[in-house]
């Protein structure tokens, strides 16, 4: 019987594992190999050059700027997104005056918050190009000029552009995490909130003493997702910013540099080397994040 079950399970697993090996593992392995060649994408016989690409990568100042931008996003995007999402989710679920129900119109807001998630990233990027229009008639700049200020170059000022990108990323991500955290909160037994508020806990205490500890697992998952998303940022930067990651490389990220080197400069070998570095950054981040956020689980 046991033997039959094993065979049954293996039968079901074979196909997905096969697909995974062919379409995920094999290309990864190939990327490691291509990273050690000078392949330019069209030749049938790439030349093996060992670690030369990685040595060049060390001196590539634009790539390290990209890494730094990913670093900034890695820290700020999860913090801001989770912070805002938690705040909204709390208001929607237990933020009402009674302390155990959401504020009025919670259902409506939940749908509205989710909207950005439904839009394709490229559409979001094009949309925000209009929002960030540098002239006085731009959506944000019409407000700025109405306040009597000079129009702001949201995407054309290299000191501001990265913050504009961060804003768009957070705007797009928040909705999903509001829903995720709402689901998490909904699974926390109501009586806990009731008991706490009978004991005189205010909304702030409810949030920090009850909601946050009981939601920790969900937040941790969200953290890892957002961290990986921050390392993988591409479409928003590529479509929205000037010079694909500009002006003057001020918003570029690793994925954009990989794309540029592969599909614009036709340096597939070099781009693969960047990809390998990004791979290790991502894996490293996931390991570190899971280690750091390991914490006593509250059973309920």
């Amino acid at each position: 019987m046991r033997y039959h079950r094993a065979r049954f399970v293996a039968g079901f697993l074979a196909l997905p594992v096969l697909l995974y090996v062919v379409y995920v593992i094999a290309p990864y392995a190939q990327a490691f190999y291509i990273a050690m060649t000078n392949w330019r994408g069209v030749s049938a016989t790439p030349q093996f050059i060992g670690l030369e690409n990685f040595r060049r990568l060390l001196d590539d100042s634009v790539f390290w700027r990209a890494v730094a931008h990913n670093g900034v996003l890695l820290v700020l995007m999860p913090v801001l997104t989770i912070g805002i999402a938690l705040f909204f989710a709390f208001l929607l679920n237990v933020g009402g005056t009674s302390g155990v129900a959401g504020i009025r119109g919670a259902r409506f807001y939940r749908v509205v918050f989710f909207f950005p998630q439904v839009l394709a990233v490229a559409i979001v990027a094009v949309l925000f190009q209009q929002v960030f229009q540098p002239r006085g008639n731009g959506m944000l700049n019409s407000v700025v000029t109405a306040l009597g200020l000079e129009p702001i170059g949201f995407l054309s000022n290299p000191d501001i552009a990265l913050w504009s990108v961060l804003g768009v990323l957070v705007w797009q991500a928040v909705g999903f995490y509001v829903v995720l955290f709402s689901a998490g909160m909904a699974s926390i037994p109501r009586d806990m909130f009731e008991a706490a508020s009978i004991d005189g806990a205010g909304r702030v205490q409810l949030f920090f003493r009850v909601t946050l500890p009981l939601l920790w697992d969900t937040i941790q998952v969200g953290w890892v997702y957002l961290g990986i998303a921050a390392l993988d940022v591409f479409a928003v930067v590529w479509v929205m910013t000037a010079e694909h990651g500009g002006p003057d490389s001020s918003t570029t990220v690793m994925a954009a540099e990989i794309y540029r080197n592969a599909f614009q400069y036709f340096r597939f070998g070099y781009a693969s080397a960047m990809g390998v570095v990004l791979f290790f950054f991502t894996v490293g981040f996931a390991v570190v994040a899971l280690r750091l956020s390991r914490r006593e689980r509250v059973e309920f």
Binding site: L18, V22, P27, S43, A44, T45, P46
Partner: peptide, 24 residues
């Protein structure tokens, strides 16, 4: 049969992937 089914397409798919094969 299952084993062969697993290996053959894998080999075929691999050689048809990103890295260029032969024909120089």
């Amino acid at each position: 049969a299952a084993l062969a089914g697993m290996l053959l397409p894998a080999a075929g798919a691999l050689s048809a992937c990103a890295t260029p094969a032969g024909d120089s």
